[in-house]
């Protein structure tokens, strides 16, 4: 669904944000795009949806070239940006003016999501809080039924019950021919939803693995002392002992802690990545 080859992108000629990046993604999954601040997560998402054009290399999304921004492409690739713009109209007229641009738009879905988020549908958009606006935009994005949904920090600004609602909605909405990429810092909110992990570092995707394969190769454990476990790659001191990432020699199933995994990849890059070759 997304085929990126040797993509290089930079705002200035001398300073590249993405360099020789390759990425091939298939539908039916929820991808978590992780990376440090300024690693280029948003730049990558913007290249995928046609807001930015690659300097060199090719990018193909849903069979089309994003930079051409054809209406059919834009109907099928929806970006939910981190900061959103909403005009000063009611939810109803927002729907009236924007929904017809998306042929697959489902009003029923939209109002169902709004209800689940507990957003009153009579409101004017400008009078809403940031979190409320975000919920309207999330509901709209999902109701377009776009094949590729790119979400930049979707849970920013959502309170705890809303994050729960968000997880429920996403879990119920993803279809087999659909693809969701969520770029996030708040891994804890979403780690039960994500089934593929992408890590953007050093201007390229250094890791692209299903969660299953990560837990096949690595064991995530909590131990009182580091002696209890062999082949430790990375550990973090916690209140009750250590959170540990180790080589999974015994083929034990464990639960991946995405935050610790991300930290482990950044600090012990070579060791972790060599497990997946």
């Amino acid at each position: 669904m997304i085929n990126i080859e040797n993509l290089t992108f930079g705002y200035h000629k001398k300073q590249m944000v993405l360099e020789n990046l390759n990425l091939h993604i298939k539908p039916g999954h929820i991808y978590g795009l992780l990376g440090r601040n300024g690693a280029g997560k948003s730049s990558l998402l913007h290249n995928i949806c046609g807001l930015l054009f690659p300097n060199t290399g090719t990018c193909q999304v849903a069979g089309k070239i994003p930079a051409r921004r054809s209406p059919e492409f834009l109907q099928n690739v929806f970006l939910l940006p981190e900061e959103i713009y909403l005009p000063n109209v009611s939810i109803k007229s927002y729907l009236d003016i924007y929904a017809p641009f998306y042929p697959e738009f489902s009003r029923d879905m939209f109002f169902k999501f709004l209800k689940e988020f507990e957003v009153p549908k009579e409101n004017k958009l400008q009078n809403m809080s940031y979190g409320q606006k975000k919920k309207v935009m999330i509901s709209f994005a999902l109701a377009t039924q776009a094949k590729v949904l790119l979400m930049d920090e979707p849970t920013n600004g959502l309170d705890i019950p809303s994050k729960k609602q968000f997880r429920k909605i996403i879990a119920g909405v993803i279809k087999e021919d659909q693809l969701i990429i969520i770029s996030t810092h708040q891994v804890k909110d979403l780690d039960s939803l994500i089934d593929f992990v992408l890590i953007l570092e050093d201007n390229k995707i250094i890791l692209h693995e299903p969660v299953d394969r990560i837990t096949d190769k690595l064991a995530f454990k909590q131990v009182m002392s580091l002696d209890e476990i062999a082949a430790v790659i990375y550990s973090e001191g916690a209140l009750k002992g250590y959170a540990v990432v180790a080589i999974n020699h015994k083929q034990e199933p464990s639960r991946m802690d995405m935050e610790i995994f991300f930290n482990a990849v950044l600090t012990e890059k070579q060791q972790i990545l060599s497990q997946f070759n």
């Binding site: 997880r167 939803l193 089934d195």
Partner: peptide, 17 residues
């Protein structure tokens, strides 16, 4: 699969597994 995914807030692929 989908119903349980919504109840438990997890990826449907995980329920599948």
């Amino acid at each position: 699969v989908r119903e349980l995914a919504v109840i438990l807030e997890v990826n449907p692929n995980t329920i599948m597994r």
